[in-house]
Design a protein around this nucleic acid. Sequence first.
RNA 1: GCGGGUGUGGCGGAACUGGUAGACGCGCCGGACUCAAAAUCCGGUUCUGGUGACAGAGUGUCGGUUCGAUUCCGACCACCCGCACCA
Length: 880
Amino acid sequence: MATERYNPRASEPKWQKAWDEARLFETRNDDPRPKHYVLEMFPYPSGRIHMGHVRNYAMGDVVARYRRAMGSNVLHPMGWDAFGLPAENAARDNRINPREWTYANIAAMKAQLKTMGLSLDWAREIATCDPSYYKHQQKMFLDFWRAGLVERKSAKVNWDPVDMTVLANEQVIDGRGWRSGAEVEQRDLTQWFFKITSMAQELLDGLDTLDRWPEKVRLMQRNWIGRSEGALVRFAIDNPPPGADPDLLCFSTRIDTLFGASFMAVSPDHPLALLLATQNKELAAFSEECRHTGTSLAVLEQAEKKGFDTGVNVRHVLDPSRLLPVYVANFVLMDYGTGALFGCPAHDQRDLDFANKYGLPVIPVVMPDGADPATFRVTEQAYLGDGRMINSRFLDGMTSDEAWEAVADRLTAETRGNRPVAERKVQYRLRDWLISRQRYWGCPIPVIHCEDCGAVPVPDAELPVRLPTDVTFDRPGNPLDHHPTWKHVNCPKCGKPATRDTDTMDTFVDSSWYFARFTDPWNEKAPTTLAYVDGPNGWLPVNQYIGGIEHAILHLLYSRFFVRAMKATGHVNTVEEPFEGLFTQGMVVHETYRLGSGASAQWIEPAKVRIEEVDGKRNATLVSTGEKLTIGAIEKMSKSKKNVVDPDDIISGYGADTARWFMLSDSPPDRDVIWTEAGVEGAHRFVQRVWRMVSEAAPFLKGVKPKPAHDGPAAEISKATHRTLKAVGESIERLAFNTGVAAIYKLANVLQPAIGELAAGGKDEATRGALREALETLAIVIAPMMPHLAEECWAALGGGKMVAEQAWPAFDPALVVDDEITLPVQINGKKRGDLTIARDADQGSVERAALDLDFVQKALEGRPPRKVIVVPQRIVNVVA
RNA sequence: GCGGGUGUGGCGGAACUGGUAGACGCGCCGGACUCAAAAUCCGGUUCUGGUGACAGAGUGUCGGUUCGAUUCCGACCACCCGCACCA
């Protein structure tokens, strides 16, 4: 019989409405079932969703719908990372208020997301730009401050003198501002910091507990935190200039090599260098030059190691008869360690280059095992390995490790001026988190600056400090600072006229706790509700977090810090790690097409391109003119390359289910997926095929009870059904959606012929029962991935309620194994045939049966086998 | 430079703890249905040789362990990603 094509344009809105009306995805905090929190990284409201969102949210939705079917109370919320610079740029360029621009974008994107049919609890929607959200953020800022986790200090920042704002490192390109093109200056500004370094060790240790995170991300964070063990060594300055500290303190991980030291180097910003520069024009000029080359990464790589001999000397800590010259050097960083180091040329390549350039001695003090101390020299290549100590007096003959300990023991015991000469010290590469931004569209820092009282917190009762709405963007700089009245207030402490802090918080702060806010977004009094946020009846940690690898460090590290800080200030009970399971999905990539060549070449959108295959070669032409196009590399979808496919076009053309199915098929979720027209069409064909099978079979299965068959031909259907149930469940739990998709295709291939025969009038009672179960199962297993089609199939079969309310059936273990198994039979490790035998046959009978096979007899040529290996349920190998 | 990952048919990829390499999809080839086309359904599709049964080769390269290696070990090649003057 003829069936109508499935029409997603009619079905999808219908089921979306039905779910909404049944409030299926609204989650109650007091639901007693086991909790499961599924979260995808919330989007920035740019105004349009892109394919990356579709992929991300399709994956999360599969997990959420599956967990729901497995009986969990699932929290699956959505919100908006709504503060940020693009709104201000739009305001400046189009004279739109950033707030209006943002909320219009949110409305547009929300409408788009709704068409995807995601099982989201929209009742918990939050936008970080809403005062009802940032109010609590301001409260937590103040709580953190009181708890000693916030600090106001001077910092070097990238200052764009044209835009009059601070730039993040990634916004500085070749030393110039990315927008203005102006040469970026290093400025000292007093800024607010979150003291993330105070938790460096906890953040490092916590990584070991995150066994459901990708190893790659944990490693990146480990490196970012950059723990190293060493010692702070205090060198006495022999001829300290007036006003200088008589000691030069430096951090070293290689105190075993101290006898190889031949110079000291300090940063141009080291107090000693700054002091000396006031008396020495040449040095001042040198330091200034160093500061200017200090921005671009690529330049740094190539930059020559340069130094300036200050004429100051220090006494060697282990040999006071030796003097070491102090240089100001361009490669010493002020914000690592103490901004000073001792140079040991023989065992550090950078120090060796420096020593060779300035004619400083190179004294090898560590020698590889087996080398001859009389002849061992270091000239061009520093020796970085371990070995035996030489030229090191009391250390000679020790291993590097022994020498390290010996030096540490000796120097920590020795004192000069009542203080030890050295102390053991753990150093981290991690820096404190600078959160001040000189921008309008962000969370105001709730602080008032008073001449008499200093920085004073805004009283809790006066929170939130709201952003003013009447702002202008017609001149560079911070609109909050320009605003005629906003910043002028009275000091909460003394009542005298004072000014508000006009900086706003880094938007990474907003995204560092939104997952906690979702657990009770209705609480007006506090950021979180302790009963719901975590603990025995709370939601955190997020069981499965899904998002892009680009947030591997900052967002995830900041969130891990934030939750610890929230715990310290009583905003969560016990959790420290916000995300129990993390999954980083790959990008959506697409071919690129170009018209013309060289400088006049332009990129062409895929929608305007026709691809034809001639003799196995793919040719691209521009549809409108027929011009030939060059097919370029497959790259991340981007506006600049125009290789973007709009989710709206796909969803309105093929439906959301097709888009979702395609996103989950083929490519493993953590790898890039190549978007192709052929692939989408293939996905859509399967949507139609499932519908055809179900709608064809449904009339013949009316009133039939689903019943698995254990023998006869119908058992093949039931076995396929239960195997699919097992495979799909396992693949979702492993987040290997592509293999689940394959399992579903396989089931369809088994059911297809049976349905054909059914429609032709055949099939007994057993088969009809098995088929009914199979098709109901098909609807259930596709439901997490293609929820609308699943509902339509479920309805056609006459199942009760909606498929979104059905439990995931348990597979019958008896049906996923065969009574008879087919074992491959190898001769000398090469497969030569099969042996079909009862599943429970013992080892001996398997061996006898295998030896009876004629191809085995033939291979043995009458001789007894040298060995027969029988791996139960697996394989037989005959060694001839 | 340091650290990590990946490499399997024409393509995307599958293969659990060492046990039939290529599941499933795309593409392609053939057939059925049709006046014809689309859609759909059925069959085939790693390579080489052979009409064929079959034989040989085969998971980046070379070597090792093993009855047996995509899987374990060593060396190398290619590509991708992260960090990068961190003392």
